[in-house]
Write a protein that binds this DNA or RNA. Structure first.
Length: 289
DNA sequence: CCCGGAACCTGAAGGC
DNA sequence: TGCCTTCAGGTTCCGG
């Protein structure tokens, strides 16, 4: 699923190929990918525009146009942006093709039709609905503590709230909590200062590592060139049920449901009750793999 | 405001 | 082999 590391990988890998290119035409294979009732206006504002750069905010990708507009794209769960030649026929599940000059095109592939794109005068609208960027300097342990203060919802659910922190999805929420040794059902406000600090460091570490590995191809995520990411091979708990044991303590990974999301964790490394000494130290000292 | 659950969508996987 | 049900999850909406 495209979360922050996947969208960032797409941004980085598309940028050198499409910056400076102009949009020559648009093929809409499934109209639901753009907002209803606006196809003509959408085309008029899009076609002929030069791409001036790419920007990411949370899981949203913005293709900036010379007019000042931004084409905002959200890949939701199964979307990919594939870089193709101009003449390449759209394969199965491609919902839209953005044709560019110099014989290239972007194929928006999305088996489950959750992905969307729309035009916006600026990217400020994203700031209104999104919280802090977890990899920016403004995301501090103190800020995280203030976001969690007095919250009774499970910490896992809070990590998924884009209004608090932008870009964390199901996979990286589970991985961050495992890395920090925190049980996913702990109420957000119950975390000690020490635990918040660990979680803050873990989030940044996990996201940075995943970007270095070009994202995780657990489902239908592909990089623009069609390659897969390799971050999934470093996962310790996410999508690890099926009889897998914890790589640290070798007991079975467990699964619970939080806000209708499958949530994986190690019951020993992530104790349900706050313990100042036990879980974290042991967990920290074991070397990865 | 806070919290949890349903809906959207469709391919894959599992049950019988 | 085949039909049917369930599961997957980012975001938004709705009810308590």
């Amino acid at each position: 699923m495209p979360e922050l590391p996947e969208v960032e990988t797409i941004r980085r890998e598309l940028t050198p190929h499409i910056t400076g290119r102009s949009i020559t035409s648009l093929t809409l294979i499934w109209k639901g990918i753009i907002p209803a009732s606006s196809e003509e206006g959408f085309r008029a504002r899009l076609i002929g525009q030069e791409i001036t750069g790419l920007y990411r905010r949370g899981k949203y990708l913005a293709i900036r146009l010379a007019s000042g507009d931004s084409l905002i794209i959200h890949l939701r769960m199964t979307g990919s942006l594939l870089l193709k030649s101009g003449g390449d026929q759209p394969e199965r599940f491609v919902r839209a093709v953005i044709h560019l000059d110099r014989n290239i095109s972007i194929h928006f592939r999305d088996p489950r039709k959750f992905g969307l794109m729309w035009l916006c005068q600026d990217t400020d609208s994203l700031d209104k609905k999104l919280g802090v960027e977890p990899l920016e300097a403004s995301f501090t342990a103190d800020l995280l503590a203030s976001l969690l203060k007095n919250r009774k919802a499970p910490i896992k659910a809070l990590l998924l709230e884009q209004k608090l922190i932008a870009g964390i999805g199901n996979m990286y929420a589970d991985e961050s909590l495992f890395s920090a040794g925190i049980h996913p059902l702990r109420p957000g406000g119950s975390l000690s200062k020490k635990e918040v600090k660990r979680l803050h460091r873990s989030i940044r570490k996990i996201l940075r590592a995943a970007i270095e590995q070009k994202g995780a191809s657990v489902n239908t995520y592909y990089r623009p060139g069609g390659e897969e990411g390799i971050a999934q091979f470093s996962f310790r708990v996410a999508h690890r049920l099926g009889g897998n044991n914890c790589s640290v303590c070798d007991i079975p990974i467990e699964r619970v449901t939080v806000r209708n999301r499958g949530t994986y964790f190690c019951p020993a490394c992530q104790p349900e009750v706050k313990t100042e000494t036990s879980g974290d130290h042991r967990h920290k000292q074991k070397a990865p793999r």
